[in-house]
Design a protein around this nucleic acid. Structure first.
Lengths: 338, 338
DNA sequence: GCTGCAAACGTAACCGATAACGATTGCAAC
DNA sequence: GTTGCAATCGTTATCGGTTACGTTTGCAGC
């Protein structure tokens, strides 16, 4: 058994077995050209020392590592769900997964984080990467699949039908009798944010409700950014009777702000979100939202990446998954319909 | 800008800037001994090519990488919560995080997965590692912190007060009037599983309730393993009036089984779990359980690991976090008290 | 003009593993 | 007894980056 000291390397094994490192490598990788007795010697040396090949050294030399990467700038409920899907898709596939997340939670909103992280992994450590909500276009020598791409991105991607989901929410609110519906937008560089805003605009237009630009608040997807925006909307003399936020995290903040202001939800104000993160069901009242199955986003992205790496992907470059309106207690008919 | 082709290496930069790779390395790492004009040339070459240093190559040569690792054998709700805590603890710390998970979801229960994964990362890629629920002792040249260690493990660890949590649940059930309380145990090699079972036994003993060995079902923590165990318990002629499972995943399975058998929960059967994963609050009825704040487990483990890597850890080697009983709808007084 | 010194920079070894290639050996066929 | 071929195994270049060490250059001091 190895001591706690320096890690056991291939040359340690070679020395003990009385062979060269090349032979050890051949044994480890099951290559042809080693006698049975030598294999046995090497095996027992490996056993005795507790040797395990270094992922780093292997990946530096080899082109193929059987490791896929996932790059993200932060780690929230959204990411966790995606990861579950990714792991399930990779189960029994022979691919291991490395997730790279950096610690500068908000510092890296400086555009380009995805490209930097990708460059550090791709080409050496990983055979391919999934990138979650990048801020811009991504380039890489190895295959890449993007979850929630940036606007105008041409990389293979998996995304939810954000437009349909957003129109469904707004139609739901319109159906309840709301006419002044505030909107808290997400980071504009993301296609998802843009599509959700388009859905909002389109649903209003089709219902013949004029758009009031004052009711659109521009935020990032960062939940913290939503609090002042919600407050500004609700402080207006002609405040909206409903608020639709482009993400659940922001919607839950808005809900909190409404409570703090002494407003009754859904009596005085209806609130709706987008994503259906687990916390939304637990909120009081439960948050009306759009389920976009982040699990499936992850699952499909991983499935696609596997095929791309193996070179046998046949499907389309962009996968769009359906969404589903989830009505809970946070939306109701306005108390004083306009 | 780089094409989609081969990744940009340091020698590419060196060639363009007309210097050696050594000089580029010095510029990248801010070392002394480069003239201002040369720095400028190298900088612009880096900019032009979009160069980013390879994590792999760097870590192979250097001892310090400023990357911490987390090793896990699967990815479930439990792991996701832990990860959030880890990420928050690492925020702004200068340490990046790499999570390594392998795809053989169940194949790797073959003991020793943690040691294999650890050996592949430690000593090269990462400065230290967090290992989640290992099956045995872990050894490494770099610092390691274990979340939910194996029984008898001596490595620095973070764990919840499993014993106190389990006794609290059983006392709660006893207080409701239950006397026949089934127990679905976890993987015996884990200290957490053992402590929870000890808590169960102790609480019964202190209440003067004799222990019926037939009511203890031995499983792993794998939720799937719990279904047949729960069914076996409930098929008994003298079936228990309550079931306490050593994890929420297993408890939720037991709840499902009870429903399938036409039993009313909590009327005919009370069910309680351990962990307080998000799904437990959403179950119908809500699952009574023990909150062990997986977020804090992750947070404390990361805090400890940071200090260990920097060599300034002062606290104890084992951190035990308090637990909290969460009573929901799945437990009530038995309909026909014995 | 020579020496001394430090700044600036290149050369090459090195990290651990892989693979192309060459070298050696055993054995059968001629 | 050669020759030839295949099996076996070591040597070495290589991956990308870091760093100890050596070399060159410029300039001040004598």
């Amino acid at each position: 058994m190895a001591k706690g000291g320096a890690p056991v390397t291939m040359s340690d094994v070679a020395r003990l077995a009385g062979v060269s490192t090349a032979t050890v490598s051949r044994v480890v990788n099951g290559r042809y050209g080693v006698s049975v007795s030598t294999i046995e010697q090497v095996r027992s040396a490996i056993e005795e020392l507790g040797y395990e090949s270094s992922l780093v050294a292997t990946s530096l030399r080899r082109s193929r590592t059987n490791v896929l990467g996932l790059v993200t700038h932060s780690f929230q409920s959204y990411t966790a769900e995606v990861l579950k899907g990714v792991m399930d898709a990779l189960s029994q596939s022979g691919f291991d997964l490395i997730i790279y997340a950096n610690s500068d939670l908000y510092g890296t909103y400086s555009d380009g984080w995805e490209q930097r992280h990708l460059a550090r992994l791709a080409g050496t450590l990983t055979d391919g990467c999934i990138v979650v909500t990048p801020s811009g276009e991504v380039r890489s020598g190895t295959p890449v699949v993007v979850i929630d791409p940036a606007r105008g991105s041409t990389a293979p991607s998996v995304t939810a039908d954000n437009f349909a989901g957003a129109t469904a929410v707004v139609e739901h609110l319109l159906g309840l009798g709301h006419r002044r519906i505030g909107f808290i937008a997400g980071r504009a560089s993301l296609e998802a944010a843009w599509s959700r805003e388009e859905g909002y605009r389109t649903a209003l237009a089709e219902a013949g409700v004029p758009l009031d630009p004052q009711l659109i608040a521009r935020g990032s997807f960062n939940p913290e950014s939503a609090a002042p925006l919600a407050r500004a909307l609700l402080d207006r003399p002609d405040r909206p009777t409903a608020i639709f936020a482009a993400s659940d995290g922001m919607a839950l903040k808005a809900l909190q702000v409404a409570k703090d202001l002494g407003l009754d939800v859904p009596g005085d104000l209806s609130v709706a979100g987008f994503d259906n993160i687990p916390e939304s069901a637990l909120a009081e009242p439960g948050l009306t939202t759009v389920d976009q199955s982040m699990y499936r986003l992850g699952y499909e992205a991983a499935r696609m990446l596997k095929s791309l790496v193996r070179g046998d992907w046949e499907g389309p470059d962009r996968t769009v998954l359906p969404t589903r309106l989830v009505v809970r207690g946070s939306t109701a008919a306005p108390r004083n319909p306009v």
